[in-house]
């Protein structure tokens, strides 16, 4: 019985905002572009390869899983693209071709889809993928190369490795990675002219992306700011054996990437305003502690993964108080 003149009836409200999940994800992708450009500029073809493999496999796994389990295919919401990009940004440009694929599998299938897809995962999928790869293939995951388009990649230590060991390290080509960074090292960290993962080295590109997200109201400045300031203050107070370099600490080792793109992930951060403060603070504290007392040189990804696990309990104890209740 087809009647084209039927009147639409629906529940209130009859107006909806123009914001959609798809538009939010598109904004996140746009904001990640500067970091991709800088990553490719510094690390060359390897970076392109890792980014493409990671994104394509992430979307592919999401599509295949949803088809296989007879669910609605949601790759159009672009969240898999974001996960793929973030995973790639957390890998070295030297990663063999299978690594981004394995990482995407862990991120999309194990961390995201098995828990119900978008919005249901309890840990950040991209970081779960990275953590899995780091634990399983530590050698490949820490095969850093110095920036440059050279055919023969030059292996190099990362700035934080030098800080961690407390001695100046020397790259294969003879460049000194200082354990007591000066002005020049800080400028290198700002522009991304240092060794590290594809998307984490250029602090300026990440800042531009982050500011774009704040301008578009996709994220609130609160969480990134609290996180960065906490790391700055704690590393500044605690310091390393060779000295205190808080500014250098927040520019290296993925703090910017984590601050603007990882801890602000809607799904794996608290929903309540108060909870978000606790979460960002916790991430900052754990990052600083891992860096200074732990055996890993950086600590951003583990701090976020650890705090992800606390999100349900944070949400539970920071439930918003209804306006007027305080007077009871």
């Amino acid at each position: 019985m087809e009647n084209k003149n039927l009147i639409t009836v629906s529940c209130t409200p009859h107006m909806r905002s123009k914001i959609t999940v798809n538009k939010i994800m598109l904004d996140v992708i746009i904001s990640l572009v500067p970091a991709a450009i800088m990553g490719i500029y510094f690390f060359g073809f390897g970076a392109i390869k890792v980014i493409l493999l990671s994104v394509i496999s992430a979307v592919f796994f999401e599509y295949v899983f949803q088809k296989a389990t007879k669910r609605d295919v949601t790759i159009n919401d672009l969240s898999a693209v974001v996960t793929g990009l973030l995973l790639a940004y957390n890998l070295p440009s030297t990663a063999p071709f299978w690594m981004p694929i394995v990482g995407s599998f862990v991120a999309i299938i194990l961390a995201k889809q098995l828990f119900g897809g978008i919005g249901q995962n309890f840990i950040n999928p991209a970081l779960a993928g990275r953590a899995f790869l780091l634990a399983s293939y530590p050698a490949e995951m820490t095969n850093w190369v110095a920036p440059g388009w050279g055919v023969d990649a030059v292996t190099t230590p990362t700035p934080l490795a030098a800080l961690k060991q407390g001695v100046d390290l020397v790259s294969a080509s003879g460049n000194v990675i200082s354990a007591t960074p000066g002005k020049e090292d800080i400028i290198n960290a700002l522009t991304g002219n240092i060794g590290g993962c594809i998307g984490e080295t250029c602090a300026i590109a990440l800042l531009i992306g982050g500011l774009y997200l704040i301008y578009k109201k996709v994220i609130n400045i609160k969480m990134p700011l609290i996180y960065i300031v906490t790391v700055f203050i704690l590393t500044g107070i605690l310091g390393r054996e060779t000295g205190r370099f808080p500014l250098y600490e927040i520019l290296t080792g993925g703090v910017m990437l984590g601050a603007f793109f990882m801890i602000t992930d809607y799904t794996t951060s608290p929903m309540t305003p108060k909870g978000q403060i606790i979460f960002a603070l916790g991430c900052g504290i754990i990052t600083s502690l891992i860096r200074i007392y732990g055996s890993y040189p950086e600590g951003v990804s583990y701090s976020i993964l650890i705090m992800n696990l606390f999100v349900p309990i944070i949400d539970r104890y920071t439930k918003p108080v209804i306006i007027g209740e305080a007077r009871k």
Binding site: R16, T20, T74, D77, G116, I118, G119, T272, P320, I322
Partner: peptide, 27 residues
């Protein structure tokens, strides 16, 4: 006539941020 399809909650927290009573509509 807008009749958009519901998708998974992405836990963005916009509902509670804008709620005039500061309730937690998602919950």
């Amino acid at each position: 006539c807008e009749n958009p399809k519901e998708s998974n909650c992405i836990r963005c927290g916009k509902c509670t941020e804008h709620c005039p009573l500061n309730l937690a509509p998602y919950a």
